[in-house]
Every structure is written in structure tokens, then in C-alpha cells.
Design a protein around this nucleic acid. Structure first.
Lengths: 257, 257
DNA sequence: AATCGCTATTTATCAGACAATACCGATTTT
DNA sequence: AAAATCGGTATTGTCTGATAAATAGCGATT
């Protein structure tokens, strides 16, 4: 319980203890030092600890509080600069960029967002985006999909139906949706969909609940598969919309967690 | 000794990667050293000089070829790692990640893409994505837009109509579309749209050509504005589709450049 | 032939220095 | 007194050099 997922930055949690300096021998904390630090600072920024426009502690301060060298901090900062979370200038320090400049469609930032406040609003925005993307992807797939792509879609759908455990079914489910995205033939649609789906996965521990809904959802998936197989774009579009309406209702009803 | 350290400017071009297209004019040298280096390496990767799976020259080699210190190279590499273009491990070096792991929706990567080969396919994928996004954004805007947002949309539309010069009109045009995206009320839709539009801008030097098309396009924009003002989602959706069909035709006809 | 350990190579991290720059307060000028 | 100028200072940018850690490849051993 309460697996806060921060096993990586365990050493980094105690921000500024000037007195105690424990041995920093622990290793294998999930990644390299600069990556852990980037994670930690990035999370704090997205979480709102440092609002846009404010200036962060300087590199020396980070180095001291994390008990690492300035180089490591700098490399972490450069990673966050690459995501447009920060901009830094001599004498000024590093300021948090305004939100509209953040590279929002970045795995890490999406991940940090999903740990931040306003999970509910974030979830709704994500799902709305999915609601826009996926029906069109299905329509495109119905038109452009190759035979091999169709085989993958059908296999995933069949696997969903005959899945015994919930994780097994979930795995087939995402495989199904990703196969559709790939079948759309658009090289941008697929990665975008992957981003959205994986971000949703982090917030979506309650999608499938009752066996009733589960059966219904399976029927909807079957319809989608058939529409794409028979190359009916408009029907595929509508079928996917129907499926998403279903989960929309779940989101609106259900509490955030 | 001229240890002035400002020699980094022109020296970036003389590196000789295997089978690369070398000479280009001097690059945007505005930023810091590590940023320039990240630009250069990132461009080469996206351009295909180093295919996915291959390992890059090691840090010392980059440092030598760019005539900078290893730290600068490392910071550049960290930036590219943040974009998931690279992954590096001791003893191995830095390998280029497979394309499907790249953070494709990143300003820089999009920018590098637009300079790479296959501009035409990229343009079509981008426009297809826009074709999916914008009509729905307009429909959402017709429902959820605030009075202030509507004012911005209308103003942009009016400015388009009474624009005298082409850049002036273009500026109002993007303002119009961005205002619609913002009016959609979805915090993800707006930045996504910004990304797409600005990437398209780089490839779109030939959008508006004849006064005929220009007049027609203005009418289409007027219709969109009216639909959103009168809160008709479905009509707004169709109007935007019509507009995009127009530029679709232009893309299909016109040469890539 | 299979396994194990060694070594070489590369990144990871550290430490310390200097340069460049932009803000801020003191000083000078009008 | 107000304004302009100027130097001090804090912070990032860059360089240098060194050490640690990780692991792929290879040779030795069984």
C-alpha cells in the first residue's frame, strides 16, 4: 500500500539537512544520479512547488541539498531545459517557464502531471483528446490498414475475449487500440496515441469493474474489429465513439480514485 | 595564446560523419555551446546520419570534433536523452533509440524533422493530424467558449479580412486558429495545436497564392467565426473541415517546394 | 564446448577554476 | 535632489583533469 513509486529518489527526499551527512553508498536507485535529480526537480516544478516565473535555487544549492556535484545538477537541469520546463541565464538563475511553453507531450512531464494535483481535470482532458483521436484513427485504419495490421487487430480482439485474468485482458486491450492507431497509417497518430494511452493507464485503475460492463465492452470491441475488417470507416468511427462514451460515463460517475 | 574561448562559433561544420551531407551555411549560433551542439547532433540523428540502433562517436570524439570540452558535449547529450533520441550506457556509448521511442511532439525534433528528408510525407501526416484536431476543437469551442475568447476569435477574423500585407494576414490567420484551440477549453488541445501549426508553418511557404483562393478562404473563415459565435458545434465542425479540404487540395496539387 | 574471470573502453561523477554577464547599490554628475 | 554612470557581486557557462563504475569482449580454465 502506498507504493509511492519514489523508490528511485529515496536518498533525495531530505532536502536540506546541514548537519547529518549519511554515507551515500546506496546505489541502484532506479537510474543514474542526474536522471533521479531531473525526476525530482521536474516533479516539484510540475507539482507546483515552484510556480512559473519563479527562480529555482541555484546550482550550488541543489548540489548541496542533494549531496551531489554541480555537474550532476547541471546535467539534470539541461534535461529539464530540453523539455522547456526551465530556462536559465547567467546571474539570473533558472526560472520556471510559463506552462504554455512546456513540452506537454513528453512522457516524463505527462507522468509528473499525473502525480500532481488536478488529476481529475487532467484525466478529463486526456480522455477528451482520446475521444477526438481514436475514432478518426479507426476510420483511417478502416481505409488504409494492411492485411498484416488487420491480423494484429483481430488477434488482439480475440485475445481480449478469451482472456482469463484482468491484467491479461488489459494487455490485450491496449494492444488492440495501439494496433488500430498503427493501422491508421499516420506516423504521428501512433506515437500520440501511445502517449495518451499510457498516460491514461496511470490514472485508470478503475476502468473495468463489473462483469456486466466487461461483457458490454467486449461487444463494442468486437463491433469495432468488424467495421475495420469490412473497411467501413464511418461505422468504425461511430463504434469507437460508442465505446468511448461508455468510459466517459464511467469517468463522470466514478470518483478519481 | 588566444585562449579566448569564443572560438566555438564557426567550428561546428568540419566534422565528418560517415556518409553525411556536410556543408551547410553557418548555423544559428545564438545560443550557448551545449545548445548548439545539441542542435547539431539532434539534427544529424533525425536527418538519418546515424540510424536508430547505431552508436554515436564517444564523448571525447565529439569534444574533439567540435573543439569544446567534454562537459559541453555531455550536457548536449543529456538534452537529447531528455527527448528520448539517445540512451547511453557505460562501455557501450550512446546509441540512437528506435524512432517509435522518440518524443516526436517536441519543438526541436519537429523542427529537425522538417529539415530532414521526407518533408512531403511529414507534411501530409501533420496536415492529417490537423484535419483531425481542428474541427473537433472548433466544435468544442462552439460549446464552451467564453465571451472573451469569442471576442479574440472575432477580432482575429476581422483582422484577417482587413489585412493589407501577406505576413499581416498570416499572423491574423494563426491567431484565429490558436484562439479557436484555446476556446476549446481543453488544456492539452491548445499546446498540441500550437505544435502542429508551428511545424506546419515551417513547411508551408506556399499556402496562400492567388487572390481567388484568398477570397474563398476568407469566406470560409467567416463562416467558422459565425458558427462558433452562434454556438453551433456541428456546423462549426463542418465549416472547419471544408476549410481544411481546401488546403488539402493545395497540398496534393502543389509540389513540396 | 561451456563457463568464468580479467581487462579495456566508455560513460558517470566528482572537484576546482576562470570567464561572462546582468543586476544592484554606491558614486558621481547635472 | 534627481539622474546617469560605474564597479561589485552573484550565478550560470565552460574548461580541465581525475577517479569510479559498468559491462562487452576475450582469453584462460575446466
Amino acid at each position: 500500500m502506498e507504493k509511492t513509486k519514489t523508490q528511485a529518489a529515496e536518498l533525495f527526499r531530505k532536502d536540506a539537512p546541514p548537519g547529518a551527512a549519511p554515507a551515500r553508498g546506496s546505489r541502484r536507485m532506479g537510474g543514474s544520479v542526474h536522471e533521479s535529480i531531473a525526476q525530482e526537480i521536474g516533479l516539484r516544478i510540475v507539482r507546483g512547488d515552484y510556480p512559473p516565473g519563479s527562480v529555482l535555487p541555484n546550482e550550488a544549492a541543489w548540489a548541496a541539498s542533494f549531496k551531489v556535484s554541480r555537474s550532476a545538477v547541471r546535467e539534470a537541469v539541461k534535461m529539464l531545459m530540453a523539455k522547456n520546463l526551465l530556462s536559465s541565464r547567467p546571474k539570473i538563475g533558472s526560472r520556471v517557464e510559463p506552462r504554455e511553453r512546456w513540452n506537454l507531450f513528453d512522457r516524463d512531464i505527462l507522468n509528473w502531471y499525473s502525480q500532481g494535483p488536478d488529476q481529475r481535470g487532467f484525466l478529463k482532458a486526456l480522455h477528451q483528446l482520446r475521444y477526438i483521436i481514436e475514432p478518426e484513427a479507426a476510420a483511417l485504419a478502416a481505409e488504409h490498414r494492411s492485411a498484416e495490421q488487420m491480423a494484429v487487430i483481430s488477434a488482439a480482439c480475440a485475445d481480449m475475449a478469451k482472456a482469463q485474468s484482468l491484467p491479461e485482458r488489459t494487455e490485450a486491450d491496449v494492444r488492440f487500440h495501439l494496433a488500430i492507431l498503427k493501422g491508421s497509417g499516420n506516423e504521428l497518430l501512433f506515437p500520440l496515441g501511445v502517449l495518451i494511452e499510457s498516460a491514461l493507464d496511470k490514472l485508470f485503475l478503475y476502468v473495468t469493474r463489473e462483469a456486466n460492463d466487461l461483457h458490454h465492452a467486449q461487444n463494442l470491441h468486437n463491433v469495432i474489429e468488424r467495421c475495420i475488417r469490412k473497411q467501413k470507416p464511418q461505422a468504425a468511427r461511430l463504434a469507437v465513439r460508442k465505446l468511448m462514451d461508455n468510459t466517459s460515463a464511467i469517468i463522470d460517475r466514478g470518483g478519481s480514485r
